[in-house]
């Protein structure tokens, strides 16, 4: 998976969970939850969407690596090999 693919996957999921979110307007190095106004239920939905698309486990223990947009993209690229 390329970073662009990872990014567009996140954008697609957010379009459903938090309609109106524009990734370009988010600070990619700040907390994605705060930037996109996501609560724990939204984050769980986001993980679920990414899990469905990639088959990755996305364990709770890895949550810290998914904290920001940039770190999430990097994590997805690395994890998908």
């Amino acid at each position: 998976m390329t970073p662009d693919e990872a990014r567009s996957m996140i954008a697609e999921a957010l379009a459903r969970i938090a309609p109106g979110t524009d990734l370009d307007e988010l600070d990619p190095d700040e907390s994605l939850a705060e930037e996109a106004d996501l609560d724990s239920m939204d984050l769980l939905s986001l993980l679920d969407a990414l899990h469905e698309r990639t088959g990755l486990e996305l364990a709770e223990a890895d949550a810290a690596q998914l904290r920001t947009l940039n770190s999430a993209v990097a994590y997805l690229v690395a994890a998908s090999g």
């Binding site: 724990s40 239920m41 769980l44 939905s45 993980l47 679920d48 990414l50 899990h51 486990e57 996305l58 364990a59 709770e60 223990a61």
Partner: peptide, 12 residues
């Protein structure tokens, strides 16, 4: 642990 996101439970 070990469950997919859809099967997890939140503190709420």
């Amino acid at each position: 642990a070990g469950r997919p996101p859809a099967g997890r439970i939140l503190l709420s």
